[in-house]
Design a protein around this nucleic acid. Structure first.
Lengths: 222, 222
DNA sequence: ATTTTCTGATTGAACTGTCAATCAAAATGA
DNA sequence: TCATTTTGATTGACAGTTCAATCAGAAAAT
């Protein structure tokens, strides 16, 4: 039926009549790329259309307004990030240290940790202060992430008799992770992804020395 | 004739013929407020002028272009933040734990930690990914801050025979501080300034338990 | 034949940057 | 002390540009 759908993007012009959902995703991906390259302030509908190799009328056809396009793009990113860490936790070994390590590593997987995605996410974050809608979405993302971390921290605190407050330990880890993200967002980051992860593990080690080293969790099996 | 000049605007309207430098600062402050309220993307020269209670032609008279206005605003913020933490370190007690605590607390002083300033700084940060100039300025700010922290961390590591790498410990503290900032930027932050600082101190305690508690440094005098 | 997707020209609004005119204050001269 | 000139800060109207959104119609798809 749809022999077209194979080479949807990159160089070859992705000719007409892609299924609705696929076209929307293509345009959202183009939006992420454009925001990553030009920032939100200077991103126009024309830029997005050009990036996708389509006409700008089509962007309005699928998303009605620019505000809506941005909103849906943020939604897409937030869902992607959430799915990513949730799945990482789900497939991790079933003990707290392994799950916490999986959670912390998830945001740095190459699939989600691309320059354009980091940059776009940060751009939305920067605008969040003045846009209640973005604020709410970024906030909700953080809350869910934070709760998951806190629950794991609580398990570790109990297991290791650490003197920490779980909410605070969780916050230290989350903020550290977000800060490393900001560093890596720069086109010429001061350190690479591996060193970023090691920094996070150093943070986990400082909090939970019985369960973590700078290389990651200490396996309970020995 | 000139009965006008007194209260043309609301709060503190320095009417006509202000010296050049003062007027520029007034316009930059108006820019910070506007960016904080509307974000960079939707801030216009007209908005800034209105915020300052002046005509929009005057903004161009003093700053030529919008890009230049934004650039100078970022410069102003970066200088202010740097001066703030440098002075805090300079007046702190002359031992590493006290200086580190002063450094960490500096960014959360009410003078610099206002909603508009946090929000504006974050907005610039969000755009930094796509603007080499912003990138460089934000980067330089971070580098200087990081070097100062690292030097203090190194002193503590030596003093306490901690197993850390100074660069990584410094990075953990800096990223944690930046992450807390991001949290506090939200109009309805998930926790207050005091709790933010306590979180930072908890991070310092995890790294340097001989020198810090969640309340701050442990005074060497006892 | 009908519906859905897509294009590119067009429109109208908003914004930036310019400029001539205005005006307050400082400098100068009486 | 008071009038005159000079300076440069300030205004508001304007020109030119950019951009979001619309729309009529073309091109697939069903």
């Amino acid at each position: 039926m749809d022999a077209v759908s194979d080479t949807v993007e990159d160089t070859a012009p992705p000719r007409r009549k892609l299924p609705r959902a696929a076209r929307r995703v293509q345009l959202i991906e183009a939006t992420i790329e454009t925001i990553g390259a030009r920032g939100i302030a200077r991103t126009t509908m024309g830029d997005v259309a050009k990036q996708a190799g389509l006409s700008h009328g089509l962007v309005n056809f699928h998303f009605q307004t620019k505000d809506n396009l941005l909103h849906e793009t943020l939604l897409y990113l937030a869902d992607e990030f959430r799915d990513n860490w949730m799945e990482a936790v789900a497939v991790a070994d079933p003990y707290p240290a392994a799950q916490l390590e999986a959670l912390l590593r998830a945001d740095f997987r190459p699939e989600v940790c691309t320059p354009a995605r980091l940059s776009a996410w940060c751009a939305f974050w920067g605008e969040a202060g003045s846009r209640p809608l973005y604020q709410q979405m970024c906030g909700e993302h953080d809350v869910a992430y934070d709760q998951q971390i806190e629950s794991l921290c609580q398990s570790l605190i109990t297991a290791g008799a650490y003197p920490h407050i779980s909410a605070r330990a969780a916050r230290v880890l989350r903020t550290c992770s977000e800060g490393v993200w900001l560093d890596l967002m720069m086109p010429e980051p001061p350190y690479d992804l591996t060193e970023g992860l090691t920094t996070l593990m150093a943070c986990a080690q400082a909090l939970f020395p019985l369960h973590f080293t700078v290389l990651g969790r200490i396996d309970p099996a020995g």
